[in-house]
């Protein structure tokens, strides 16, 4: 199963390097799942967040109320409780999800509420004059939102949105509590399955897990910084919090 096995055999049994060699292929599989979870959740959150934000800024009474209540509820409660509601709660309604799907939906719905607030803040920070000018040129309301308001709002939202991506990556680790086979869970499973002289290495396993998270977070932060530089427009900068 471990393609490095022949090489690992040559390392001293019970040493830290041997441990790294033995378990890193499986940990990387877990990392791949973590990324899959993060990307799908953030995408779901993006679509949901945008709709919620439009609902909160431009929506009529019932839409405004629903989207506001959703955002307040989600932001006021722990993501873990939300995951429990989805994973353990939905089967009561005959909806059974595997842990990964439940985690994607749970983290995505959670992120939507936070992203909605970034988008709302950005949309509202765009002066009313932009809308007036767009209407004066003859654009319809929907065209004005599509061509003038959103392009500006989306650019302004990149810095807080970058933070949200990193947050989701970090918070995806809670999925391990409902048994999603992501990085944390893989670490836990490996640590519990070690036998013989290599057993009881939880601390070291989680150190390696921590190191992988650290590298992922730092590398992605750097990439997002570069992205920000590329799409920057004079006068539309927004400070990264």
């Amino acid at each position: 199963m471990n393609p490095l096995a022949p090489f690992c055999q040559t390392l001293e049994e019970g040493s830290f390097v041997r441990l790294v060699c033995d378990i890193s292929p499986r940990l990387l599989q877990g990392t791949a799942t973590t990324f899959q979870l993060t990307v799908l959740a953030i995408a779901l959150g993006l679509v949901g967040g945008l709709l919620l934000a439009l609902g909160r800024v431009y929506g009529k009474k019932p839409i405004y109320w629903l989207s506001t209540a959703y955002v307040q509820f989600v932001r006021g409660t722990p993501v873990l409780v939300q995951l429990f509601l989805i994973y353990y709660g939905l089967p009561a309604f005959e909806i059974r999800l595997d842990p990964l799907t439940a985690a994607i939906i749970g983290l995505g719905l959670n992120s939507a509420a936070y992203q909605a607030e970034y988008f709302r803040g950005a949309i509202q920070s765009i002066g009313r004059g932009q809308m007036l000018a767009a209407r004066a040129v003859g654009l319809t309301n929907v065209q004005a939102i599509g061509y003038v308001i959103l392009p500006q709002a989306l650019r302004m939202v990149i810095p807080p949105w970058s933070n949200e991506l990193i947050y989701t990556l970090k918070y995806s680790s809670v999925a391990f509590i409902i048994g999603t086979p992501e990085l944390m869970a893989t670490g836990q499973i490996i640590a519990s399955s070690l036998r013989g002289p290599g057993a009881f290495r939880h601390f070291e396993v989680f150190l390696i897990v921590a190191f992988i998270y650290l590298v992922c977070v730092l590398v992605i932060s750097k990439l997002l910084d570069l992205l920000e530089q590329r799409v920057k427009i004079p006068g539309l900068e927004m400070q990264r919090a």
Binding site: L132, A136, V137, P151, Q152, I233
Partner: peptide, 20 residues
């Protein structure tokens, strides 16, 4: 929207589209 195409409007504070 048809009428506004035929009427140019210049604002006190310009209102140029900031992202363009």
């Amino acid at each position: 929207n048809k009428i506004r195409q035929q009427i140019g409007f210049v604002f006190q504070d310009f209102n140029l589209f900031a992202h363009l």
